[in-house]
Amino acid sequence: MRLLILGGSGFVGRAVADEAVRRGYDVTVFNRGQRVAPSGVRVLIGDRMGDLSALGTGAWDAVVDTWSAQGEAVRRTAELLSTRAGHYAYVSSRSVYSGEQHEKAEAAPLVDDGDEGYAGDKLRGEQGAAAFDGSVLLARAGLILGPYEDIGRLPWWLNRLARGGPTLAPGPRNSPLQYIDARDLANFLLDTATRRVDGPFDLVSRSGHTTMGELLEIAAEVTGGRAELRWTEPATIEAAGIEPWTQLPVWLPPGDLHEFLHGGDVSKAYGEGLVCRPVRETVEDTWAWLRSLPGDAPQRADRPRVGLDPAVEAKVLGE
């Protein structure tokens, strides 16, 4: 397969490139050249919102687009690559849903396309992808974890647990989680590209693939067993003014938002072949990657840093 990845050196794009090279595909990546490209790929340099001349010639069997900003950039490449590629997969987000009637899965209502935030950008990206003249797959990913993560969610937990000591563990311990390892997302994108599958797919594990308890207990074990998890009720966390998802990454208290993000119907994706690896593998591989780095984990400039101030954590725990 001749594969073009728009991106290809960051988190999800890197996972797609690595897997495609492992499969023996002919892989081209197009980006600004600001990160080291994976080995085994051909690099084209350009700018999604500027110079696309490097994409002016060439033909590919499939395109994977990992862009997450202005939707106009997706429209530009979708139009430019029409007639020169057979399939276009755009990595979107479950954020495009309005949050209502989540039991409808991919048929649920979407946000307004005038939304100025991340959700609106992703929806406009989906609309831009529709300019492509072949099959278009919309990969509506949820929480993405795994090696090369540049948002900082799982890396923050791993580094915190590695420090050890009493650790605020947000309950309930048996709270179900839905997420996808970036490598499983990559496999799905490549497998469906070979069959030119189109349409929207919600891409996360089944609800309860793991729990908050299992995730943190495995992470505590993998990082050396020095952390003492202290399970804390959501009401106590809320009373302390601690923000879920950002100050305590991955975690959401019980309620509508948790049900939406961690209780979705993903039968369509599983029916098309999605396979999600065990949480232990994701945790172990992410920790191994973190320990291999000469410095801190990469951090996307367009996303805020996540994590809890140690002083706030100690106060809540009474330490």
Results as ranks from 00 to 15, higher is better:
residue 3 L to Y: 03
residue 4 L to S: 03
residue 5 I to P: 03
residue 7 G to S: 05
residue 8 G to D: 00
residue 12 V to T: 04
residue 12 V to H: 03
residue 14 R to Y: 03
residue 15 A to F: 01
residue 17 A to F: 02
residue 18 D to V: 00
residue 20 A to D: 05
residue 21 V to G: 02
residue 23 R to E: 05
residue 25 Y to H: 14
residue 25 Y to M: 13
residue 28 T to W: 06
residue 29 V to C: 04
residue 32 R to Q: 01
residue 33 G to S: 03
residue 34 Q to I: 09
residue 35 R to C: 08
residue 36 V to D: 09
residue 37 A to P: 05
residue 37 A to F: 09
residue 37 A to G: 10
residue 39 S to D: 09
residue 39 S to C: 08
residue 42 R to P: 00
residue 43 V to D: 07
residue 45 I to K: 15
residue 47 D to F: 05
residue 48 R to L: 02
residue 51 D to I: 03
residue 52 L to Y: 01
residue 53 S to I: 10
residue 54 A to N: 06
residue 61 D to A: 05
residue 61 D to Y: 02
residue 63 V to I: 10
residue 64 V to E: 00
residue 66 T to W: 02
residue 68 S to Y: 09
residue 70 Q to S: 15
residue 72 E to H: 06
residue 76 R to D: 15
residue 79 E to C: 09
residue 79 E to K: 11
residue 80 L to E: 06
residue 81 L to F: 05
residue 82 S to P: 12
residue 86 G to H: 07
residue 87 H to F: 00
residue 89 A to K: 00
residue 90 Y to R: 02
residue 97 Y to S: 08
residue 99 G to K: 05
residue 100 E to M: 10
residue 104 K to D: 13
residue 104 K to N: 14
residue 106 E to G: 06
residue 111 V to Y: 02
residue 116 E to L: 08
residue 119 A to T: 04
residue 124 R to V: 01
residue 126 E to D: 08
residue 128 G to P: 07
residue 129 A to N: 04
residue 130 A to F: 05
residue 130 A to Y: 11
residue 131 A to E: 06
residue 131 A to N: 09
residue 131 A to L: 05
residue 140 R to Y: 04
residue 143 L to M: 12
residue 145 L to M: 11
residue 146 G to D: 10
residue 146 G to C: 10
residue 149 E to D: 15
residue 153 R to H: 15
residue 158 L to P: 00
residue 163 R to L: 15
residue 165 G to I: 07
residue 166 P to N: 10
residue 167 T to H: 06
residue 170 P to A: 06
residue 171 G to A: 05
residue 173 R to I: 14
residue 176 P to A: 13
residue 177 L to E: 13
residue 178 Q to A: 12
residue 179 Y to P: 03
residue 180 I to L: 15
residue 182 A to E: 03
residue 185 L to D: 01
residue 187 N to V: 08
residue 187 N to W: 11
residue 194 T to I: 09
residue 199 G to L: 08
residue 199 G to W: 07
residue 199 G to H: 10
residue 204 V to L: 14
residue 205 S to P: 11
residue 205 S to F: 11
residue 206 R to V: 15
residue 208 G to R: 05
residue 208 G to A: 08
residue 215 L to I: 11
residue 215 L to R: 04
residue 216 L to G: 02
residue 221 E to R: 14
residue 228 E to M: 10
residue 229 L to S: 03
residue 230 R to H: 14
residue 233 E to H: 14
residue 235 A to I: 07
residue 236 T to Q: 14
residue 238 E to W: 07
residue 239 A to N: 10
residue 240 A to N: 03
residue 242 I to S: 02
residue 243 E to K: 12
residue 251 W to A: 06
residue 254 P to A: 10
residue 256 D to W: 07
residue 260 F to Y: 10
residue 270 Y to G: 12
residue 274 L to H: 09
residue 277 R to M: 11
residue 279 V to E: 03
residue 285 D to P: 11
residue 285 D to L: 12
residue 286 T to Y: 08
residue 293 L to N: 04
residue 293 L to Y: 04
residue 295 G to S: 09
residue 298 P to Y: 14
residue 299 Q to G: 13
residue 301 A to D: 14
residue 302 D to P: 10
residue 307 G to Q: 05
residue 317 L to T: 13
residue 318 G to W: 05
residue 319 E to M: 15
